[in-house]
Amino acid sequence: MTPFDITLLAFAGFAAGTLNAIAGGGTIFTFSALMAVGVPPVAANATSAAAVVVGSVASTVAYRREVLAALRRLLPLCAISALGGAAGAFLLLRSGDQAFRALVPWLLLAATMLFAAAPLIQKAVQRMAAAGQRRGGFGLAVPVQGLVSVYGGYFGAGMGVMMLASLSLTEDSDYHAINAAKNLMSIVLQLIAVVVFIASGIVRYEISLLIAAASIAGGWIGVVAARRVAESHVRALVIGSGLALSAWYFLT
């Protein structure tokens, strides 16, 4: 890697950690930076997934009380998340760079739209959780979570918003319990997907560690920034960048 590549990747990791601490959406930047420095699309996605999984672990630990309280009930969803994450990872490996590259602009656009809709989705989840309604039964959670997990193992950007919405259809606890369940499902499927990627030999370890270290530093800064910068400004930056990147990949 050149000094410019290292700087770009470190900046992307730092920005991702900061943005995830404030509003989310950091995966869009890490994946795009990896593509920009010449990492093939499939390897870029796998390397980005390996780097950001650290943040998911930290989020799950922060919600450990809620996770432990619902762990037994969530075990079937953990199992389907693991299967879906593995299926998505294998699907990514089988699709190859050419097919995946053709999907990249559509995936980035979809992730950006999901990110833009996240506040509305979160408010709807909070309202439904506050109402204490059971919205479809546990049986609906398994296939829905399976589909979301396949997407998460395949690409991942925007997965958290999708999962938050899908879990709200079946969970009748408060918002933080739903969010905790989302974090647990995320770490399970991401870890399985990363294991598949590592076994395939496509993860660029040195780049992944660089991004992970920078994202941890960005996460600390993000906590401070979250108290000083309006979330609406940050969201506008992420949405604008996501749309610009989508347009770039559509045109190139």
Rank of each mutant, 00 (worst) to 15 (best):
M1C: 08
T2D: 13
D5Q: 12
D5G: 07
I6V: 15
I6G: 02
T7S: 14
F14G: 09
G24P: 01
T27Q: 09
I28C: 07
F29D: 03
L34A: 03
M35S: 07
V37P: 03
G38M: 10
V39A: 07
P41D: 03
V42W: 00
A43H: 08
A44E: 04
A44C: 06
N45L: 02
N45V: 02
A46I: 00
S48V: 05
V53P: 01
V53H: 03
V54D: 03
S59W: 01
T60A: 15
V61Y: 08
Y63I: 12
V67S: 09
L68R: 15
L71N: 06
R73Y: 07
R73C: 02
L74R: 11
L75V: 15
L75K: 04
L77S: 04
A79F: 12
A79G: 12
A79R: 05
I80C: 06
S81R: 09
S81F: 01
L83S: 10
G84V: 03
G85M: 01
A87D: 02
F90M: 13
L91R: 10
L91K: 09
G96K: 07
Q98P: 00
R101G: 07
V104L: 13
L107S: 00
L108I: 15
A111H: 04
T112A: 03
M113K: 06
F115C: 13
F115T: 12
A117Q: 10
V125G: 06
M128W: 13
M128F: 12
A131I: 08
A131K: 14
A131H: 09
Q133H: 11
Q133N: 11
G136L: 09
G136Y: 00
G136Q: 04
G139V: 11
L140P: 05
P143G: 08
G146T: 15
L147W: 00
V148H: 03
V150R: 02
G153Q: 04
Y154T: 09
Y154K: 12
F155L: 06
G156T: 09
G156F: 02
A157F: 01
G160R: 08
M163G: 11
S166R: 09
L167N: 13
L167S: 08
L169W: 08
L169K: 07
D172K: 14
S173I: 06
H176C: 04
H176K: 14
A177E: 12
A177K: 13
I178Y: 03
K182P: 05
K182N: 11
N183F: 01
S186K: 07
I187E: 05
V188L: 03
L191E: 02
A193I: 09
V195G: 07
V196H: 02
F197H: 10
F197V: 13
I198A: 15
A199T: 12
A199S: 14
S200N: 15
G201V: 02
I202D: 04
V203G: 08
R204E: 14
Y205S: 12
S208T: 05
L210C: 10
A213K: 05
A214S: 12
I216F: 12
I216G: 02
I216K: 05
A217D: 00
G218P: 00
G218F: 00
G219P: 01
G222D: 02
A226R: 14
V229R: 08
V229S: 07
E231I: 15
E231C: 06
S232L: 14
A236Y: 07
L237P: 03
I239H: 01
I239R: 06
G240D: 06
L243R: 06
A244W: 12
L245G: 05
L245V: 13
W248S: 09
Y249K: 12
F250C: 10
F250P: 05
